[in-house]
Design a protein around this nucleic acid. Sequence first.
DNA 1: CGCCTATTTGATCTGATTCAAACAATGTGG
DNA 2: CCACATTGTTTGAATCAGATCAAATAGGCG
Lengths: 251, 251
Amino acid sequence: MTAPVDQRTEHDALIRKLRSISPLSDDEVQALRRLPLAGAQIDADKDIVREGDRPSQCCILVEGFVCRYKLTEDGRRQIFSFHTPGDIPDLQSLHLPVMDHSVKTLTPCKAAFVPHEAIAELTRRCPRIGDLLWRDTLIDAAIFREWMVGIGRRSAATRIAHVLCEVFLRLKAVGLANGFECEFPITQTEIGDALGLSTVHVNRSLQELRSSGLIDLRRGFLGILDWQGLKKAGEFDSAYLHLNREPSDAA
Amino acid sequence: MTAPVDQRTEHDALIRKLRSISPLSDDEVQALRRLPLAGAQIDADKDIVREGDRPSQCCILVEGFVCRYKLTEDGRRQIFSFHTPGDIPDLQSLHLPVMDHSVKTLTPCKAAFVPHEAIAELTRRCPRIGDLLWRDTLIDAAIFREWMVGIGRRSAATRIAHVLCEVFLRLKAVGLANGFECEFPITQTEIGDALGLSTVHVNRSLQELRSSGLIDLRRGFLGILDWQGLKKAGEFDSAYLHLNREPSDAA
DNA sequence: CGCCTATTTGATCTGATTCAAACAATGTGG
DNA sequence: CCACATTGTTTGAATCAGATCAAATAGGCG
């Protein structure tokens, strides 16, 4: 079993993610590697779990982007979070049997499914990993709070700059950004549904950010031209992400 | 030590709250009763923990109302949640050492403080209680999500009706509502800061709800005149609260 | 090419904010 | 018991950020 370092397996994605929020011992890494994972390829725009479901497994995202969302009675959508490789978007189903929202792919994705029972056993044998997963769900909640601040109290352009900073830093934390560039396959409609804005207004606000020389965003690709400026425009302070250590070149 | 049944101790508040989200065995109740709690009386409008703090203990609310919040750079406030007796508003500090937001009292409060170490020991000895506390933080996050839907996608009156339903049901779940009435010592400014609205607009929207015959809200006191109507006006479905069982008279 | 989805632009409208002031309730000290 | 301060609620008028409606443009792809 000698896999090249840069080849990412399902386990690697998860381990990399967990390392981004806390150090892992060798034993813990070994325990994680023993998790039984069932890989799967999923098309874009497919629900992975739906509101009302009672999942018996969790989904580890290995490649691609997914979001969590809920629909209102009149069909409007609120997106709660964007997820990047290594995330377990439905980890909560471990302790909340009935899903109160849905999870869907934004792009074609590679995923890995792990039975609840396997996670429960892992956390029994390795309580520190249990605490770490708990910590992960707490960071999840911290991100919800930060989005609430944006939706409730910040202007459209500020919100958008903020979420660009966030997605970039989270990708960077798991090694999926080069310098100040990263994939960003999220449409303007999706940004709007995440930030409580109309597509039209997202478009106009993005033009502001572009013409201010802060970003270069096109075709699923984000280039940050002025990181300090973008952070300022988004009132962004990464503390709420509770990252293990901030990437040196992008503080 | 024979306390009358209706006299609420610090431990009772916590046990009642945990029972509202999951059944507890006798052993578990006994273990909870052994938690070392330090009682305290706190004035209204006082910070209990602040953004940036590194608490070594958690705060169990025993009497009164507290909220969690964050301020933006220009001094606007976003409130994330309202907390009622039995809640542990800063439970997350157990696994996220640095607070990313603040907690403050809305009314004079009775609180009880418990060292992190005591909770850690309890969860080691009694993993089911650990899972239950984890579950509690997950419900917390579910409430954040529901508020996001409101702030991002619902009208002012709908949001307000929704939060009234929520606070009422949560009070009811811990035995602090009589029929369709409960304390509601939250000011219109605070409602606005929670729902991303101006005080003026909260006031006007409340008048709508009153003149529709749905509620009677005045001087820190909420009467629900038409529960079905209020639920409808607030697009309220209690599933996201993940309560142990819905109160029979208020489904 | 034609189809589909995403982005962009223009024009108009509105829910909610802001500013300003009055009003009501509660509490305080003399 | 009253003057006074404080905090919360209510009202009115003007304004604005962002929504809505409608349509054009631009990519990507079988």
